[in-house]
Design a protein around this nucleic acid. Structure first.
Lengths: 179, 179
DNA sequence: ACATTCATGTAATAGGTTACATGATTTC
DNA sequence: GAAATCATGTAACCTATTACATGAATGT
């Protein structure tokens, strides 16, 4: 059982869902392709952590709905009490920053402007999903509270990246007149 | 050539370094083990992007120092002009948050307190490295400026995580008396 | 007509971690 | 005497991405 499997199990524990549902739902918090998710769900079904049933749909293709089993719930509780791995962050932009000294200042500026726009777009993406949660569900005790606070975290961390870019551009702006 | 290879090439372009040096230097920005770094450096040497020489040391084991070649520098410039991949963030803590509804409140609180401490420690780690950079090198034009601003970014994003935890704990605190 | 969304799966490849392997020097 | 740091490398395994494969319905 890897970390992503536990994440999927946790999502199913909140509400029965298809692999496709889960793929979309987990995106903002863990980027995984369907080709990784489907086999993991199949494995958890085999292990008896999930049970599945096919649901026929008229307007859309049929789907396989997963539900958590008592054994699955037990696994989730065990996972929660185990030590939590350190977060992993991999950003090509950061590595490109190691080249500022050798790059054309205009290209560096383009890089920062481009990344700033990316972050601003992400902030809107997070806020839009967050605002779709009814205010009465934004309280501890509701399952939607989990989504509400996680989207807030993604928003706040992304905003920190924008604030950092503005801080860098200000530093560079203050310095250039002296050059 | 993958992203990590370019990051290593960028670091070598600033100053000749050993695999071990690079492993330590890149840690705060890209978590990679020595077992991944050594083969990548060997591959870039074969491709003629890096040149290497063995340096004998009396007090420590001998080391292999890498320098960038003109072809390596050319590759770096090409990389900078190519589109930058979106950052990837994977945090088990976020997935555990999907279980708040089913977990013991005391355990959830422990999870948050533990993670808060982790972030506070990381903030100190980033600040300590950043403060080791002489103030006169913290300006655009110096190579150390790149480290200075990247450490600031890591610090600001980590601080955002702490602020978020405090925001959540406040939300939960306001709600509990009504329960 | 063409792109997107919904829906599921497998195969091949690339990226990353853990374990294996060695060995000197320094610090507690 | 034990642990940590410095230093390099390979092998096995796990994780993740890209490509292959199919097909209906909806929107432009």
């Amino acid at each position: 059982m890897n970390t992503l499997s536990y994440g999927l199990l946790a999502l199913v524990s909140r509400k029965e869902a298809s692999g496709y549902d889960l793929m979309l739902k987990i995106q903002p918090f863990w980027q995984a392709k369907h080709s990784q998710i489907y086999p993991l769900l199949g494995g958890m079904e085999e292990k008896g952590l999930l049970s599945a049933k096919w649901v026929q749909q008229t307007d859309k293709p049929d789907k396989k709905l997963y539900s958590i089993t008592p054994e699955g719930t037990k696994m989730l509780h065990e996972w929660l009490s185990e030590p939590t791995s350190a977060p992993v962050m991999r950003d090509e932009f950061n590595l490109k920053c190691f080249c500022i000294h050798m790059a054309d200042p205009a290209e560096v500026h383009r890089l920062f402007v481009e990344r700033r726009k990316y972050h601003i777009d992400r902030m809107k993406y997070y806020k839009d999903i967050q605002e779709s949660i009814p205010p009465e569900h934004r309280n501890p005790g509701h399952i939607a509270f989990e989504d509400y606070i996680l989207l807030q975290k993604a928003y706040m961390r992304t905003k920190a990246s924008v604030d950092w870019i503005d801080w860098v551009e200000e530093l560079v702006g203050q310095w250039q007149p002296q050059a």
